[in-house]
Design a protein around this nucleic acid. Structure first.
Lengths: 195, 195
DNA sequence: ATCATATGAATAATCATTCATTTATTTAGC
DNA sequence: GCTAAATAAATGAATGATTATTCATATGAT
């Protein structure tokens, strides 16, 4: 049954990613997810108790993956300012490489804090904190101004990246390539906060 | 009938703002909007053809208001860098003063480009362009580096503000006051892009 | 009296969820 | 290694709940 490494469980998550990305959570029909996964409607209810649970499970999975990946990459850099650059590039690359996931994070993450009342998105908080920690480290090394508040800085930087992601996801043609955007965004931010 | 200055039309928009803000568009019931507005369910259909149309009308109204207000305020400042500061402060004040509207713009605007397929949010584009124009002006006056791309800069800045807005809207207690946040965000950005 | 507005109960469509039934897989006896 | 219970998974048509929308009727204004 509901084993996470189970074949059908995976198929449902994968299908739901595509279906949710297409029209958002509310417009997505369970029967459409089933069809996309190539299984019967009822089968979904062997693996998930409610439609909502599919979305929550999907988040957890994707965010864990993103978070682990980002942590690993950040560790490869020792200079905090370089870490910020790498964060930007990796974040945007992730969006580019996984459009469906990006749409979910873009569209659904926004609603999530509303409709998943009690669901506190721990993984997202950790993701933001990765940035906060880099800023803190930079301050301690004297590379970043001492008056910078990590709690504000991390949101400013994430917000900037995130807005570019939305633009990327919603655009048909891409005016700027990922590398250019990442370079610019991280440069504004680094110049803005460095000592 | 559907006159925009009509009393009931206004009441519906106002009620819908509150109801949509509470649980998002999809969870909001038309009957609840009617109840909140103190009118009968059917009356709503005299003024709006579909539930969706209420949301669209609501956007247009609020965004027009925000846009006009912002334009007026920006004109009071002549220094482009000061304009950026003022933009940040005003944007965040707006969120603070109008939490329901902010939640709608935060939560629903995100979905909008998905669920209102053909609805191109012109007012939002104009809002972003206000920032782009300030950056352009700053470049021309030699106050902003010539390699800054307004199309990226405007999104980075808006994204930063917007992420802080979301944080503000979703937080019970507010760790930082609006003025502090506005000052920090605009400082990061101004330092990041100035000559 | 006529026309415009407003009402809210009734309608109808939409989907999430269930469950009686079928199909597949495992276990145990020989 | 084979067969037959026994158990687990999967099916999809039927159910039931929810709600957007309609419309026959009522109310109020001119």
């Amino acid at each position: 049954m509901g084993q996470k490494n189970n074949n059908k469980y995976r198929k449902i998550i994968s299908a739901a990613t595509r279906v949710f990305a297409k029209n958002g959570f509310y417009k997505a029909k369970v029967s459409e997810i089933a069809k996309e996964a190539g299984i019967a409607d009822g089968t979904i209810y062997i693996y998930f108790k409610h439609k909502d649970d599919i979305l929550i499970a999907l988040f957890e999975e994707k965010m864990k993956e993103v978070l682990d990946n980002m942590k690993k990459q950040i560790r490869l850099e020792s200079d905090p300012l370089k870490k910020i650059q790498r964060f930007a590039l990796l974040h945007l690359k992730l969006i580019e490489d996984n459009k469906d996931m990006a749409e979910i994070i873009q569209i659904e993450l926004r609603q999530s804090s509303k409709f998943m009342k009690n669901y506190h998105n721990e993984k997202f908080v950790q993701y933001l904190d990765l940035i906060g920690d880099i800023i803190q480290e930079g301050k301690e090394k004297g590379l970043i101004r001492s008056d910078i508040i990590p709690g504000i800085g991390k949101r400013a930087f994430f917000g900037a990246l995130d807005e570019m992601s939305r633009f990327w996801v919603l655009s048909k043609r891409h005016k700027y390539d990922i590398e250019t955007v990442a370079k610019h965004i991280s440069n504004y931010f680094i110049n803005g906060i460095k000592s």
